[in-house]
Design a protein around this nucleic acid. Structure first.
Length: 555
RNA sequence: UGACCCAUAGUAUAAGGGUAGUACAACAGAUUUUGGUUCUGUAUGUCUAGGUUCGAAUCCUAGUGGGUCAACCA
């Protein structure tokens, strides 16, 4: 039985198990999560985090958090802090917090070692000249005129680069590999460039910085990383990764690549997300419509739901586009279990219960969460005038409409059964008020009326209700795969992705604290936003409830 | 007209030469004081063509389709 429910291994886990079995690293498993601190983490990073931390955890290993900070121009400590916060929030603890910049001295020595082995040279060509000599994927490149400088000359020039004696862009250090390789990355890749930029950690100490390919693998190696897991676009880099490690004769970390996550109706590149932020299409990196970890957190997502999602989508090497519906399923599933139910009317219609005594307020008891027997009950006030949802009344109801209609009855959740007697309209024929009568002996829990109704609707007592701002979110883009559509991805932004309304919520919500998640009965899951004040509640809709009635009527 | 990676229901992901399974989505029904939840059931798949084999989703070859590679980004 245990075998039957056991989850199968993804291909990374299979590799680790094979290595464990063959004793390749003496049973050691050490992975790393290597973000560049130039943007906020998104759900795609969550997949990588769950994979890296998850695999290590599973096999008794550890994971380093390493910031790949080799480009001071785009990097910033603001991002470092947000990344650390997000990884922790997701529920993972790193063994060490490292920075590629910790290794700048060592990397510099590695570069000199390559020069001394005749495997690197300083090139004075302009970037245009270098591009011209590089060839194309189908045509080989040609050697740089500077390719055959002597070791001594190269050492001296590289030293001068380091000492700031050359202007930016005038010299680079290149690995001497093969300008005719079918792998463009092996055509004498640049490994060091000059940048007079202030680094977020090393300040002005350096004016030369290693390129990704000369930093990442060596950093892995220095840390003794056993399994360096990255996304598919790095497949062609693996040859260079191995070349560096081989020629430097250092610990052989191995790189493995998996397919990155793509989600429907959103974009997942830091460049595009940065654009949305900078151009004001969203309120910031943590806008609840963003696929960022901070956006999802503010939206009301839980770390458990995100981890569950990452677990369900699997890990493989083929390109994929995952339905955002799966993410929504994951958060609904968890929130169904943990979110307290409350009543909130988002689009109010006034109901007067004409046979209920004026001025009277009755305190009713209702369950906090039928899915959680330990969640207890709470009180809700009931009175003569209440709000119900506009779409819970229809003057001319279709067949199988279980809500309110002229002459029809419904149960008010945890209260009485009411019958609609009269429909009040304004001069435009718009329904503005309903007059109902309640069945006195139909009180919830002590119903002796013998009447059974098909529908139960939520409501709030007008005199006791609190006003709240509610932000209803929809998908940020109108098309499934905006990044792969013709033209600019921003042409596909959904301008109605945020709708702000005023809702009436039950008084118990006065005590709500930021981040607390609720189910607004029959409406969806909501959490209190940080924009709330003592006098103004602000709720974000995390996700709606599954609505089979809407689907039915939409057919 | 190159090299490399990939190809299993609508979407993902298993099956490591031996019964094509799981999840989400879809559909039908039951239960329900949330048209929620829960439960039951149904339909849908190995890119194509060859080859190896008693037996191929799995191994081989070719084709087709998709992706990646020509930043002093990572």
């Amino acid at each position: 039985m245990a075998e039957a429910t056991e989850k199968s291994l993804n291909f990374i886990e299979q590799i680790i198990e094979n290595d464990l079995e063959s004793g390749k690293y003496d049973g050691r498993v050490l992975t790393r999560f290597p973000p560049e601190p130039n943007g906020y983490l998104h759900i795609g990073h969550a997949k990588s985090i769950c994979l890296n931390f998850g695999a290590a955890q599973k096999y008794g290993g550890q994971t380093n958090l390493r910031f790949d900070d080799t480009n001071p121009v785009t990097e910033d400590t603001e991002y470092v802090e947000s990344i650390k916060n997000d990884v922790q929030w997701l529920g993972f603890n790193w063994a060490n917090e490292f920075y590629a910049s910790d290794y700048f001295e060592q990397l510099y020595e590695f570069a000199k070692k390559l020069i001394n082995k005749g495997l690197a040279y300083v090139d004075d060509s302009t970037s245009e000249e270098m591009a011209a000599m590089k060839g194309t994927p189908t045509e080989p490149g040609i050697n740089s005129p500077y390719r055959n400088r002597t070791i001594e000359e190269n050492i001296a020039l590289f030293e001068k680069m380091k000492n700031g004696e050359f202007a930016e862009g005038t010299h680079v250090l290149r690995a001497k590999i093969d300008m005719t390789s079918t792998n463009m990355l092996m055509r004498d890749p640049i490994i060091y460039r000059i940048k007079f930029a202030k680094h977020h950690r090393t300040g002005d100490k350096w004016c030369i910085y290693p390129m990704y390919d000369f930093a990442h693998g060596q950093s892995d190696s220095i840390e003794g990383i056993t399994h360096s897991i990255c996304t598919l676009e790095f497949v062609p880099h693996r040859e260079l990764y191995d070349w560096c490690i081989d020629n430097l004769e250092i610990f052989p970390s191995k790189q493995y690549e998996f397919a990155r996550l793509n989600l429907t109706y959103t974009v997942m590149s830091k460049r595009k997300l940065l654009q949305l932020v900078n151009e004001g299409h969203v309120s910031g990196w943590d806008d609840p419509r963003m696929p960022t970890i901070s956006g999802l957190r503010r939206r009301g997502y839980t770390p458990e739901a995100i981890r569950d999602f990452c677990d369900r989508i699997g890990v493989a090497k083929r390109d994929n586009l995952i339905s955002v519906g799966l993410l929504e399923f994951c958060i609904r599933e968890q929130l169904n279990k943990i979110a307290a139910r409350v009543m909130a009317v988002l689009d109010p219609l006034k109901v007067v219960i004409t046979n209920y005594p004026e001025g009277e307020t009755e305190i009713l008891t209702t369950e906090n969460n039928p899915e959680d027997p330990d969640s207890g009950t709470r009180n809700v006030p009931f009175s003569r005038e209440i709000y119900i949802e506009k779409d819970d009344f229809l003057e001319n109801p279709p067949k199988k409409y279980f809500r309110l209609a002229p002459g029809q009855m419904v149960r008010l959740k945890s209260a009485y059964i009411v019958r609609c007697d009269e429909v009040i309209k304004d001069e435009n024929g718009e329904v503005v008020e309903l007059h109902c009568s309640y069945i006195e002996n139909s009180k919830s829990g002590q119903d002796t009326s013998g009447i059974s109704v098909k529908g139960t609707i939520h409501w709030v007592s007008i005199a006791n209700a609190l006003q709240a701002e509610v932000r209803l979110y929809d998908r940020l883009f109108k098309v499934e795969d905006p990044g792969n559509e013709e033209g600019d991805f921003k042409d596909y932004i959904n301008n109605e992705s945020l709708q702000t309304i005023t809702a009436y919520v039950e008084p118990s919500l006065k005590e709500a604290t930021v981040g607390t998640r609720y189910q607004f009965l029959r409406k969806g899951y909501f959490s209190l936003d940080k924009d709330s004040t003592d006098t103004q509640l602000v709720f974000n809709r995390t996700v709606g409830l599954k609505d089979t009635w809407a689907k039915e009527t939409g057919k």
